[in-house]
Design a protein around this nucleic acid. Sequence first.
DNA 1: TTTTCGCTCATTCTTTCGGGTGATTTACCG
DNA 2: CGGTAAATCACCCGAAAGAATGAGCGAAAA
Lengths: 159, 159
Amino acid sequence: MQLLLNFLTRNKPTFLYGISLAFLLFLLKWLELRFLIINHAFEIYIGAIAVLFTVLGVWLAQKLTKPKIETVFVEKEIIVKKSDDFILNEAELSQTGLSKRELDVLQLMAAGYSNQEIAERLFVSLNTVKTHSSNVLEKLDVKRRTQAVEKAKRLRLIP
Amino acid sequence: MQLLLNFLTRNKPTFLYGISLAFLLFLLKWLELRFLIINHAFEIYIGAIAVLFTVLGVWLAQKLTKPKIETVFVEKEIIVKKSDDFILNEAELSQTGLSKRELDVLQLMAAGYSNQEIAERLFVSLNTVKTHSSNVLEKLDVKRRTQAVEKAKRLRLIP
DNA sequence: TTTTCGCTCATTCTTTCGGGTGATTTACCG
DNA sequence: CGGTAAATCACCCGAAAGAATGAGCGAAAA
């Protein structure tokens, strides 16, 4: 700031001359414009009207038309951790057609019990358990009990 | 097009009469308008300009305004499978003393494969797989493969 | 009432599993 | 170099699993 002032005071005459010249040029241009306005008053008036109403039109459009809304749907992925609490998939269960007893056997199979142990826990004979387990394998469309357990867990039939 | 021409030629007199009438009415209206225009020529001109540029403004606004983009986030549940966030429990793994090959067999056991199928997948003999599986059962201290799978999953040795 | 379905049990037969034991090869470690 | 552990394969045997079939019983549905 101080530097600028110094600069101005040291070049005073030059600046005065420059400013005078600029003022004169501005005056000339203004006079010229006045002529233009006087000679073309009508056109300028019309132009002003045009501009004014164009602006009005734009304003009206903005005010009256419904805002253009473009809706963009973005899928937001919510990661849900597979919780430990088990909710039975009843849809899949009915899909398989497993009976209550067969589900019992399946659960014990998943717990790693042998057919004999399952029989003891369910108070039925070994043969009965074998029948049930065969039905389970067939209904789940698998060949081995390990596969049955794997599939049952995948289908949320058992925890 | 041909049809329209036929229609016109067949109803020629009616059309001529109609057109004449329309023309006369138009003429009358125009004369009336002329008076109006002569008396208020300037105002009408200005009005026309105003209307024209208002319309132009509206059109411009419609054309130039960017559509407002509304983003809607649709929440999508993703159930993360247990297997996805599986981290091998190295501590438990070394605890059991399972060898790499035994772990391979254990994984295929968990997938529900029979010893024979595992042998085919690992390009070894059935006897080898039986040896490995026996070792797995012993090292996991279980009696059946279903139990081995259950325990391995519990110890986070496999997904 | 007849039919259907789930549960029960049995028998027979085949396949798979699991335990036990032993042998060979390879690789690594002290 | 010898010791050790892993990996491979083999054979035997008993247990378990699974497939196929038949059948009795009771409750619920048609």
